[in-house]
Design a binder for these strands. Sequence first.
DNA 1: ATCTTTGCAAACTTTTTGCACCAAT
DNA 2: ATTGGTGCAAAAAGTTTGCAAAGAT
Lengths: 152, 152
Amino acid sequence: MSASRIEELIAALRASGRRVTPTRRALIEQLVGASSHLTADELMARVGLADGPVHEATIYRSLDALERSGLIEHVHLGHGRAVYHLMDDLHQHLVCEVCGQVAEAPAGLFDVVQRRLVEHHGFVMRPYHFAVLGRCRRCEAAPVPILEEEPS
Amino acid sequence: MSASRIEELIAALRASGRRVTPTRRALIEQLVGASSHLTADELMARVGLADGPVHEATIYRSLDALERSGLIEHVHLGHGRAVYHLMDDLHQHLVCEVCGQVAEAPAGLFDVVQRRLVEHHGFVMRPYHFAVLGRCRRCEAAPVPILEEEPS
DNA sequence: ATCTTTGCAAACTTTTTGCACCAAT
DNA sequence: ATTGGTGCAAAAAGTTTGCAAAGAT
């Protein structure tokens, strides 16, 4: 069950020298319980619904604290808001620029590239901060999209 | 020389059904002449210096026009402003999260990943819209950075 | 008791939009 | 003469900050 996972994360937060507050606990709970990735304002809404309203500044500062403690990470799926997810749930995001759908790909997707970059450029890639953009199967097959709007 | 390249781009712009204006011409000239990638406000400054001030809204709308015509593309190197470059100058950007330095990697870097994504996920990757984040050789070698600020 | 965290309001950065005027075709 | 582009001002979107009050250790 996820209760122990939540407690582990809380313990890690405390171990990192930061304080455990209701907002931080609620954010962790939401992120553990979430089926998909959530934006800061989605998290604010859910936390507010569960435990009463929390100010946006607090949400951002708490997310920052969780991120600095190594518990979570934010990812940019395209233009607009970032999404947050737990660090131990590493994977790549495939964002369709036509329909906006987000799929997940295994974390090892970039292993080959990572090795090449270290060897040729001395560059240690951290592959999770940005999404992979492109077109999903359906949109690639479709004749031509009507919209000109890109979600990227 | 780059004069003919500029004229080619102007011709392509016209061919795409859009009008050729002093601002658009100036933007193309700056992008052709630029040694590195430029942000919208850097472009505004340079264009303004050369041909007199142009409003920011016009810069953004003109860049959008050039992008929709397929002449240029914008890339996100991290948090903050996007940078613009010519479409025919495709390559990947390696951004060091510690020192902020931007290096370039060959366009084919992701070929293997691209093939894998098509085969396994039916996903056609467009690999240029986001930078590759990580640590450059120097910062990776350094004991530990003093700053906590990430340019990402 | 101390030092973090929160709430509030306000600022900030980057980009976008509505509208009237101007200019490229 | 059309239609698309520009300037202006103002707003939008997303996130950050200063400060005093509240809360975790």
